[in-house]
Every structure is written in structure tokens, then in C-alpha cells.
Amino acid sequence: MSTLAQPKRAPETPGPKTKKVQKEVGQDRAATSQGRWAFWLISPALVLLAVVIVYPVVNAIIMAFQKDQGLDPATKLFVQGGPAGFDNFVHWLAQQCGSAACAPGTLGSQFWGAVGTTFFFTAVTVVLETVLGFWMAVIMARSFRGRSALRAAVLVPWAIPTAVTAKLWFFIFAFDGIANKLFGTAILWTGSEWPARWAIIISDVWKTTPFMALLILAGLQIIPAEVYEAAKVDGASAWQRFTQITLPLVKPALMVAVLFRVLDALRMYDLPAIMTQGSNNTTTLSILVVEQIRQGFNSAAALSTITFLIIFLVAFIFVRFLGANAVASATPKTKGQEK
């Protein structure tokens, strides 16, 4: 059960190879029966997922090409709905309301700002969480008394609901709050752009670094101690051991952890929505979508489709070019491979 005692598997054995090996063994009938079993066991879950995800997404895409009912901001005439072509997408991407640019302050004028904010939050939080998480993981991997207490403590921020985390840090960052007293400052943390952004970033780092640290720790633990011993004997310095052994061997786990965090950060909603309600340029894409819902479904659907595509694109780039292959690492070993 524990991730500790896992025999390390050579990373160069991807799943598909196994299938070929198995087919060569020539258990055609067994394979057919397994396939049938698999079909009946998996289809309920897949059908359920299709109902709760694919159906709404397809629905959203259809909605995105419809006009919203309401007054046209340019002509002041009531719009009945009907097909809109790419108007909703143009509205967001070009920040166009009718034929003119959207007035400052309207949701339509905030798209690129929200994209910038979202990517800024993602970049800063993921970098901080990776560095801090790595440090935490290295400490937790050492053997010392109280190690299991430390591992338990690290789980506490992870378990606290994000909504509670937001309120807790909102209190800590209140004007009369403990943060200002501790550092002798008088900052209106949630009152202006940069303090608000940093308050959100610090809260997010507190909440999610433990998750990162535990994933990296699991990656560190599959590196056998003998490798380090051998390197020591060969005269490698601590820095060399870190860059030549730890980093390359932990890289697959690290990339998956970073991928998870990036995709999670790109949909960030709870912290800024509760701490600042998106004011002072802390509106993320998710907040913008939610604010748009009550002003027009179809336009919101277009925006959520754009958001989805952006996240999909980032995931694609990660998997394709940076080698963060979560699927490959999740592809189970099969009977043939186990000894």
C-alpha cells in the first residue's frame, strides 16, 4: 500500500509496449473475454462522466454561438436571441461591445486583464510552490525524530476548505490584523492591486504547497539510497548529487505535480472571489465567467469555452513539449509485466 516500498520501474517502459508483448503470447480468447469484462465494468463510469461533463460542454459550445436576449448596447434595441456566429467570441477576444470597444468597467473590457491576472497568479504561485515544496519534501525525506508529526502537520492546510482558508487569511491580512502588527506595517492588504495580489498568492501558497511537497516526496522516495552512496564514494559533491541524481530521477513526478498545479491554478476562483471579489485587478477568468452568468448565459458560455480551450492548450503544451505524461505514469502495470 505504501508508496515507499515500491520497486522502481524503468521509466522507459511505456504502457503500449506491454500490449504487444501480451499479444505475442497469443492468448486471443482470454483477451477477448477480458475486453468484454472491461467494457461492462468501465462503461457505467464513462457514461456517467459523459452525462456530467460532455453534455454540459457540448451544450455550452452550442450556447456560445447564440445571441443573448436583452438590449443591444449599441442600438438600444431589444435583441431576441438567435444565431450569433462568432460574435460572442469576438466580443471577448477583441473586447468589442456592439461595434465599439467595451466601456471601461464593463465585463467585456476585462477579458485580457483577466487572462493576464490568471497567468500571473499561476506563474507566481506554481514557481513558489515548487521551490518551497521541494525544500519541504527534502526535509520530510530525511529521517529524524518527529518526522511523522511533520508529515501530519503538512496535511492540515491541505485539508482546510479553500473557502475557510480565504476567510482565515482575509482576517490575518485585515487592516488591524496580525500580519500588519507582526511586520509593523499599515497596509490595506485587500484594498489595492499589489498587496491584494500578494495576499492571494500567499494564501494559495500556504494552502497548496503541502500537496506539492507530498507529490515530490513520493518521487524522492523511489530513488534508492545506494545510488547516493555510490555517488558519494565516487566523490560527487552534495550539489552534484542534487543536480545529477535527485533532479533527473525526480523529474517525472515533479512534472506531473507541476502540471496538476498549473491546471488547478488556471481555474483559480475561491481565494480571489472571497478575499477581494475580484476587485483591484484580481479578477481571474473563472471570476469573470461567474460574473457574466447573470448578465447573459450565452456570452458566459462563450467565455467559459475560451477558458476551457486556454486550459486545454496549456495542458497540451505541457504534455507534448515538457514531457509531463500523467497518463503514462498512471498506466497500470499489467500481469505480464509483474513478476
Binding site: V52, P56, V57, A60, M63, V289, A300, L303, T307
Partner: peptide, 14 residues
């Protein structure tokens, strides 16, 4: 990894 907002809009209407 699917973003929750992509579900909220269509489901809200539905």
C-alpha cells in the same frame, strides 16, 4: 482537470 466554470454556465441554464 476540467475547469468547474466550464460546467457552471450550461448547468445554471439547464
Amino acid at each position: 482537470m476540467f475547469p468547474g466554470v466550464a460546467l457552471v454556465t450550461p448547468l445554471f441554464q439547464l
